[in-house]
Amino acid sequence: MQILVLVKAVPDPERANEITLDPETGTVKREGIPLVINPLDRNAVEEALRLKEEKGGTVAALSMGPPAAEGPLREALALGVDRAVLLSDRAMAGADTLATARVLAAGARYLGDFDLILCGAESFDGGTAQVGPELAQFLGLPHASYVTSAREKGGLLEVEAKVEDGRKKLQVRLPALLTVSRELNRPRGLSFSGIVRARGKKVEVLSLADLGMDPSRAGVAGSPTIIGDISTPTTTRSGEIIKGDPEEVVDVLVKKLTEAGVV
């Protein structure tokens, strides 16, 4: 099986609360917070590696991002993917989900034919769950979202996926794209031998020119959506801080809540 797995570089969720907002410029500051593989993409990598171990074939990892996204791709190499490709170009910056999917589609086509494309259902920092299905449209592939189990059987994939209050079972024709949920598997950790093996490998970096893609189709220029103003929410609540030792604050709080008629 030829498998492609999409990997997004996101700020380490463990350190997400270190991200601050510059009150002067209104820009988000995330310097010093390392980029890691988006958590659900770890599940996608795991599934790709498992399928390869079971059925043979190769696994390639693909990402679009700034040069620093090489780090997470190196991590993918250390986990065991055969090839890692970063699509990186100034003209790719500021892409919304549609322009991202379009560039990833060009990257996927450039790399060849795949039987299966896997990615996390959503990213930790964007959370739209749009890139996977949009990419499937650009590539003309069937897809299933929020997959919790997948098994190949006679050229078809038997897939379970989330719905409200339950699960659905689907039969998906290959080639296909699956966006995966955390329930799918437990991602393996990095091994020392994997890290050593990855040292001998390189992350290939491709530009828009390498992909033969018109800059007007990528990045901000290729994005149908734009971000207008950012505002800070205003609040009408009093924000009264109740002070004292635990017994005292509980006394006051219970009194206030009783007066308000909410307990």
Partner: peptide, 14 residues
Amino acid sequence: PTVAGRLETGLSSD
């Protein structure tokens, strides 16, 4: 996103 992808139009979520 399936429809937005086919129409190549903008979509915002949540």
